[in-house]
């Protein structure tokens, strides 16, 4: 039996690089992809530390670019040799919700590397992976020079983009709470979309400096009241679009405080808590809309691909470390300790 190298979850805070069977079953709508690069994402950490229960034995990872090795008999858009990236959330593309642009709510939604609760789809921190519904979930890379930017299209970049784009009007003031990778993707998206003001709130000076490089105004919440700062920037109106890119009650509270009347708060940050207290009076009187949930990748990936290939979104500048897949154990430890902004694996090493 042919084998491959893969990062396998062992238990809380423990992964191991193992030799596992290379995928051999390619269904009619599937493609077998050789993984050329894969990235570590904050969602992988939820599985790693078991704050999101994922069964041991799961092959980790969901952000990738690769080369198609084999396609199923019904695949029409791709052929072996094509360079591709893929949606980390595998939606069917044909159900009622997918047809209405809500692929993040597809009832059969699966996610690579998150275990049996998310469809038992082996992850992409491996040399090879089978990608279901290839025609629906994969996108061809036309400009290989942009491949490292495209690496983020299937997850955090489109997630950050949607968090702004889904309720955005040209010229809007956009405030982003949290300058981690998703927050920075939202930041560069807001700038690319032509926002009037883009303000980013965080407490880590290095991350705020990164946000400034992408064209945002940095607000250090450790030094300034974020509400005062955002209101000063917007003529005491507040932000029209607010992104909670953290997924923590304190971030949501900040998001509500900096929002204008009639604003939209979009939450790409993952909330694992089952319930929390909300200032419902503030939400009601301001008429704020709140949206969360898994990203509707199928709806927005093509827009994001076009902006990446045009050079208007450059998320690869967030990559802090490039490592061999064989170093994955160390990489996960570093990422969990927040010693790295974004780590990219080369499965050949």
């Amino acid at each position: 039996m042919a084998t491959m190298k893969a990062v396998v979850l062992q238990g809380p805070n423990e992964v191991r690089v193992e030799e596992v069977p290379k995928p051999s079953e390619v269904g009619p709508t599937d493609a077998l992809v050789r993984i050329d690069r894969a990235a570590l994402c904050g969602t992988d950490l939820h599985a790693y530390d078991q704050s999101m229960p994922v069964d041991p034995g799961t092959i980790m990872g969901h952000e990738f670019i690769g080369t198609i090795v084999e396609v199923g008999s019904a695949v029409q858009q791709f052929e072996p040799g094509d360079k591709v990236t893929g949606a980390c959330i595998v939606s069917c593309g044909t159900c009622a919700l997918c047809r209405r642009g809500k692929s993040g709510n597809c009832p059969g939604m699966r996610v690579y590397g998150l275990g049996v609760a998310f469809g038992d789809l082996p992850g992409v921190h491996a040399e090879y992976a089978v990608t279901p519904f290839a025609d629906v979930t994969l996108r061809k890379i036309n400009n290989e020079k942009k491949a490292e930017d495209v690496l983020f299209v299937g997850d955090i970049l489109t997630t950050g983009y949607e968090a702004v784009r889904r309720s955005y009007q040209p010229g809007d003031a956009v405030a982003i709470v949290g300058a981690g990778p998703v927050g920075l993707c939202a930041t560069m998206s807001a700038v690319a979309l032509g926002a009037g003001t883009v303000a980013v709130i965080d407490r880590v000076p290095e991350r705020l400096a990164e946000a400034e490089r992408f064209g945002a105004i940095a607000i250090n919440a450790a030094e300034t009241d974020p509400q005062d700062a955002v209101f000063d920037l917007t003529g005491w109106r507040g932000a029209d679009v607010v992104v909670d890119a953290v997924g923590h009650p304190s971030a949501l509270e900040t998001a509500i405080r900096v929002a204008s009347a009639g604003a939209s708060i979009n939450i790409p940050g993952v909330y694992i808590q089952e319930s929390l207290e909300l200032p419902i009076g503030e939400l009601w009187f301001k008429g704020i809309s709140v949206k969360g949930g898994g990203c509707n990748l199928l709806r927005y990936m093509d827009e994001v691909m076009a902006l990446v290939e045009a050079g208007r979104l450059n998320p690869s500048s967030m990559i802090s470390h490039r490592m061999g897949l064989s170093e994955a154990e160390k990489a996960y430890e570093m990422f969990a300790k927040r010693e790295a902004m974004k780590i990219v694996f080369d499965p050949t090493k």
Binding site: M52, P53, C92, C95, C106, P107, G108, M109, R110, A117, F118, G119, D120, I272, E274
Partner: peptide, 19 residues
């Protein structure tokens, strides 16, 4: 997941608890 997609399995209740 495939069963839910095909409607062969239906679920009602808080998704976070099911997951």
């Amino acid at each position: 997941a495939v069963g839910l997609a095909k409607g062969q399995v239906k679920a009602k209740g808080p998704v976070s608890k099911i997951l």
